[in-house]
Amino acid sequence: MHISPVLWQFLVKWLHASALFPSEASTIAPYTDALYFFLLLITLIGVVLVGALVFGFSIRYRAARNPVATQVEGSTLLEATWTIIPLALFLVTFVWGALLYFRIYTPPTNSMNIYIVGKQWMWKAEHPGGQHEINALHVPIGRPVQLTMISQDVFHSFSIPDFRVKREVIPGRYSTVWFEATDAGTYHIFCTQYCGTAHSAMIGDIVAMSPEDYESWTKQSTSGMSLAQNGERLFASMGCNSCHSGNAAARGPNLAGVYGSKLQLANGSQVLVNDAYLRDAILNPSQHVTAGYAPIMPTYQGQVSEDGLIDLVEYIKTLDNNYRVQQTLTTSQSDKVAPTTPGMVKP
């Protein structure tokens, strides 16, 4: 919509100040609002038009003024008019809505990743640097943030109205959403999918901060272990390293650099290795056997929590060589030399 930016700002600010409109705190928000105002406009036109017809005809053709009705069969021209014009408007809406949908659900490649685990009735956020939060999420402004989310129990839905984003959090599979906060401040997180007794208590605050504040927050609230470090411990303690050792004769495929690659599977298909793939491969290995390897990996279904899976996934993501894996084999104290995840910036 080509509204002058000044007018737009005025409109939005005024509506927001009247508590009739949420604040626009993400890069997505103005796009969503533009479609919203377009739809409001055609709704208004539609209602006014129908109202005018109904009231106009009611006054003009009321029985007192027009005692005898004139029978009219219909009009193909008019029928065509009110078929085609609404159809055209709806199709415009469809295209606009579809473009917006793809914008909201296609994260930029340079976004930083934060994991969200939903459970009855709380949100757990896990930053790659190991910062854990309950019912809160700290994010920097001016930087795309992708949330990789999963539920431990029932359907939840992660909603940030001020960012105009929302996505269902589903048990058994990762779903993602992304946003880029524009204004520093504290905004609501809601669970919008009914999830049992304390559904309305499954809320939290998202704190958008300037990059500098965010930097100092991450430093203060670190637990000392990054997700990848936790993952490395798990990797060693569960014995993953005995097969995925990176050696030429290893029984399991080499995991270094596997993330983001196209993998040839034993069943002939080719897949892109992403978070969801890694998680599935740990839980249902027989459906994800890399070509050239025997289907010998046991399932870890029921043995690793969703948090543990996130740690493992994050660990595998950070593996760009097998040095760390070798270290876990040679020393049981895997956390002595921690891999650095510099500033938690993930490429």
């Binding site: 969503t32 914008r103 109205p161 929302k166």
Partner: peptide, 10 residues
């Protein structure tokens, strides 16, 4: 409308 639904649904 797909994109609008994200914000409005639920």
């Amino acid at each position: 409308a797909l994109g609008m639904d994200i914000h409005l649904t639920e």
